[in-house]
Design a protein around this nucleic acid. Structure first.
Lengths: 365, 365
DNA sequence: AACTTCAGTGTAAACGTTTTCCATCCGGTA
DNA sequence: TACCGGATGGAAAACGTTTACACTGAAGTT
């Protein structure tokens, strides 16, 4: 009665805890703890007995108890936008890989772009005492960040949060890749380029759009509002956005998308409309998910290395975790670059134009 | 000195725990606990004070401590094969949705088809004291199952594990959908059908292959070993498998795939070889991931509803969790069915054959 | 008026670990 | 022989909760 809250009926297998191991190995629980934590001062003979007992009993230490007393959960939080966008599984996999390499596990949260869900995710991270958290999605509310700070949990953003310390941001150089993309199109002869963004309540969507606009300008091209569509970073979003562009009075000759899923949606809208890629429209995606190689035709896209992203995030978190006081680590930068495949080509009617007004080509330079 | 292990320097924000809430609300910690756990007997006046204090302090209860003492983590484990196969994120999302609806969170594990990783995942599940676990991937070693049993953790499989209790299996009726698929092809006139399986060390891969073979037979068709390829359930695997088939002396006129990613890989191999779908080859996938609607052309496939799968798994786990002693729940069955899109059509040379030997068509019936 | 109930509250034990501190043991030295 | 110091092991406190139990009043019953 004393031992257990529930009546322990004989048929029930005995609980396997540190005490069972200790008694089987004929040592104290302290010695068991020291042994499995590889404290060097324990006598090899006892250690051997402990290991034998532990494996015989199939003993797994209880992480919750461990975390509770040590104050370290060896858990890293990862909050992403949407697990069904293949970019994130790839990121998650890299993140997990890097985490495990450093002896951590990950606790995953997916916000589905909802503020409420984001709050729930953050709560979970705190309740489960993560040692650090990587926020790979849009704006988190300040009171949650304050709560992280109060619990001394370092966090890292994928994009500049203006109000927050510099050592907690992972700066992505969207401009590099997007500039390459715009240049690539311009060189092919495209002058009219549309852009389908992600949901604009996300900082990273805004950044990508802003980068596009700025690159357009520095290439000497003008944006047409009809071709600047807010998408949702989903297949359906890309499809619908392209239909809107097709419904506009003039058509661009090329489309850039804020992510690859959008681009695949665009491909499909064009397929339905019986328009050819790159014959009728050139298309550039963003992210370079594995699938991009496998679309028909394979997608020209801008690569943002999720391995880089994951490694830099973990590195940042870990260094702040282990250092005395979150010193101002230099800001990590993630670069992006164009991967040319088969969805970009000469603009529609390029040959025809060439024949009719041969002067234009030379004028364009 | 007594209060804290580390010297508590004044600059450090005070820990927010149940005690802080209790003292701010001027009640005992028991009352705080009862309030936040919605025990009905607490005086509304005090409850109000507690809630106010909790929100003022931004208090989140520590899940680890909670789990430790109550013996319930309110965590459900989910072990999948491979997070980068889009079927699984869709499944995970459904699973999480259903779990949250019942007040549970999920702990995710991804095995990448490696036995070692599977063991690590299972360990984590046990160490973190999950209340139940759904195993949506291939064979787990017996000693791990025994450990689950020892800890009184109910588990559920996606496929019959012969040696295990019936109430822990989720039986998928692969045959229903595959039969529809084979029939569909046969009616179109296909007599030579290839099959690209998943990795055959997985029970569910074996089941799908066996179902295909059996359906082929009952349709009166014969299997050709050259067209029975073991794939990997990945894009690359599908691509490579199709190349093998193209290298064989005779070509089938249709291909069925054990999952959609494989089918997309096949599409790409055919694109590279400049062969048309469904003109040269008809193609059927399996799973019906969201992407299947978006391939070019859209993929005919066999739907296995991951919502069904997730809901049934959770239902099963929960009912065994709450019932006195794991009573023999009736086995849940998941059905599959054909979704016809645009990758299936008449066999290659069908019209030609028709012209040349009109008798064949009638003989075929 | 003296019991019984009972709702509502607080105290303290438990959960399974880690970690501090102290006791013991050993060999070596004076 | 007595003493010291360095290993090494064990007892017990601590982590932040839940929950069994005991206690308090007030209300209802005789």
């Amino acid at each position: 009665m004393k031992r257990s809250r529930k009546a322990a009926d004989a048929s029930m297998p005995a609980k396997i805890d540190i005490r069972s191991v200790a008694s089987l190995a004929r040592v104290s629980i302290a010695t068991v703890s020291r042994t499995i934590n590889h404290v060097p001062t324990v006598d090899p003979v006892l250690a051997a007995r402990v290991w034998k007992a532990a494996t015989d009993l199939n003993y797994f230490p209880n992480t919750q108890a461990r975390a509770l007393v040590s104050g370290k959960s060896r858990l890293l939080g990862l909050i992403v936008s949407e697990i069904t966008n293949p970019f994130f599984p790839e990121l998650i996999q890299e993140f997990e890989h890097a985490a495990v390499a450093h002896g951590y596990e990950i606790l995953l949260g997916s916000t589905n772009y909802e503020t409420k869900t984001m709050e729930l995710c953050s709560r979970r991270m705190i309740e489960r005492m993560v040692d650090g958290v990587a926020i790979m999605t849009f704006g988190i509310e300040d009171f949650l960040l304050d709560r992280f700070t109060a619990d001394n949990i370092p966090y890292v953003f994928i994009d500049p949060a203006p109000s927050r310390p510099l050592n907690s941001v992972l700066a992505v150089d969207y401009r590099a890749g997007i500039y390459e993309g715009v240049q690539h199109l311009a060189v092919l002869g495209h002058r009219n380029i549309g852009f389908i963004s992600g949901p604009l309540n996300r900082r990273s969507s805004q950044s990508r759009k802003a980068a596009f606009l700025s690159c357009l300008e520095s290439t000497g091209l003008k944006a047409n509002p009809d071709w600047l569509i807010e998408g949702t970073h989903t297949l359906d979003g890309g499809h619908d956005a392209m239909q809107k562009i097709l419904a506009s009075p003039n058509w661009p000759t090329a489309i850039m998308c804020s992510n690859d899923m959008t681009a695949i949606g665009v491909q499909h809208a064009l397929f339905e409309a019986n328009l050819k890629i790159p014959g009728d429209f050139s298309l550039i995606g963003f992210d370079d998910i594995h699938l991009a190689e496998y679309t028909i035709p394979p997608l020209t896209t801008i690569r943002m290395s999720c391995r880089d992203l994951a490694n830099k995030a973990i590195e940042n978190l870990l260094s702040r975790l282990n250092s005395p006081e979150g010193q101002p680590e230099d800001v990590s930068t993630i670069t992006t670059r164009l991967i040319v495949r088969q969805t970009t080509g000469l603009p529609r009617n390029a040959l025809q134009d060439l024949k009719q007004k041969p002067s234009r080509k030379s004028r364009a330079r």
